[in-house]
Design a protein around this nucleic acid. Sequence first.
DNA 1: CGCTTTGTTCAAAAAAGTTTGAACAACCGC
DNA 2: GCGGTTGTTCAAACTTTTTTGAACAAAGCG
Lengths: 167, 167
Amino acid sequence: MPHLLDGDQPGLDSLELQVVAVFVDGVRVLGLPRSIGEIYGVLFISQNPLSLDDLVRLLHISKGSASQGLRMLKSLGAVREAEGDAERRTYYEPAIELKRLVGGFIREQVRPHLDSGKSKISRLAENAQEIRDSERRDFLGERIGRLETWMSSGGKVLPLLQKILGQ
Amino acid sequence: MPHLLDGDQPGLDSLELQVVAVFVDGVRVLGLPRSIGEIYGVLFISQNPLSLDDLVRLLHISKGSASQGLRMLKSLGAVREAEGDAERRTYYEPAIELKRLVGGFIREQVRPHLDSGKSKISRLAENAQEIRDSERRDFLGERIGRLETWMSSGGKVLPLLQKILGQ
DNA sequence: CGCTTTGTTCAAAAAAGTTTGAACAACCGC
DNA sequence: GCGGTTGTTCAAACTTTTTTGAACAAAGCG
């Protein structure tokens, strides 16, 4: 459904659309919603900061989506409010250091799961002690131990990742 | 809805359910469907290999789900057919070496996206050369260059990851 | 062969996740 | 305070993904 009275805004040119598509793909891999990729994408190829309204216009998404998308991107540290011209509305610009992006993703999306996983597994390990049948208990102890090793490897690899990707 | 004539199969005890829940959470983080986590989870705490039918019974999932789930797990190298008693039906056991699991995930889920991303970006870089406005061209060149650096970092970090997680 | 068991496929149903838009809050300048 | 602008919230609509189950293929066995 083409917008009736669009005034034919500049919109995005085909190269810009390609860039946005790359980010849309990218965030899908990370399990984030499409609009996150779109928003970050436009900010990434924009030469100057954009407002929420700009995003709504350029991407044909609702104000609600833009608002929620920006919130998530801010929480990931992938987008920040532009300093400078103290206008009424706020303008956003992308964080473009890989280190920052990876760090934010790990902090917000990976660590919490890893931590809750670890604590679930500790509880598990305790419960497994209680089992009467000794063969079963030993087997489960071994498997749960392996699970603990995995988690610990995961925990160790994250800071390393951040270090490596920080150049 | 309790099954009417269930014959009251052994089912999973509460500890086993906890383990399955850990894997369900785990695969969600990786963006894989719930049933994948369930299936791998039961195999992981089972002392002996299980058949497709066993999975259907233990998890109350359909034959279709079990079949598709096993296919994906096989393709990820996370599950293999058990050798030995050459019965009619085939039995499955989990791969429990972290290296293998991570390797399979990278090969099947990460690499393909990374590669297609890289090629999209090369095309992008070419198109950006064509732009007339030199300021715009330079800006885009710079940003796309950064994108290429990111991709290359990604490509380099994967083998490293595998090496580190392989103990 | 014909019967049975095992496993796969795929269209349709269900579930999960995302986006929309209208109502509302917050703020600013007058 | 009032009118206008900017941004947030959240239930409902929509989209996408996952699961189901019935039909079907394959293969063993008598």
